[in-house]
Amino acid sequence: MRKTVALTLTVLMLSLSVVSVMAKTFGDGITLEKMTSVSELLENGDAYVGQRVQVRGMIVDVCASRGCWIYVAGEKPFEKIRVKVKDGEIIFPLEARGIEAVVEGTLEKFDLSREEVIQRKRHHAEEQGKEFDPATVTSGKIFFQIRGLGALIEGI
């Protein structure tokens, strides 16, 4: 009996260990030939809302709990764009932080009230296990986000 249990566990662990978890392509992968800069999307986003776009840049942050969003750095200082994917559809690994990626998805525009910004930031802080002070939010916010459909992450 003991031998059977040990053998079953060994087979289970070996089966799990051969599963590749180092996938380079996520979701649909890359389909577009033309890349759009993050700066362009942040500055002239209205022209791209609803369109499939491709951006390239360093992944600067990843959702630690579900891998359901990333931030991609822009070309200019302090620029970044959020890429949100459906929970479970694409899971970005935490190891992707600091790595170059090509990401594709549909551009969305958000026009949030102050309360909505607080709700979002509170949720974000909870995910990251950090504290959040609602007093730091003084107004609503308009921003662009990519609804992620596919990505290619180099060297992961």
Binding site: S20, V21, I91
Partner: peptide
């Protein structure tokens, strides 16, 4: 756990 969730969430 990572591998278990990898399969459960059909990341494969």
């Amino acid at each position: 756990w990572y591998r278990l969730n990898f399969l459960h969430l059909n990341h494969a």
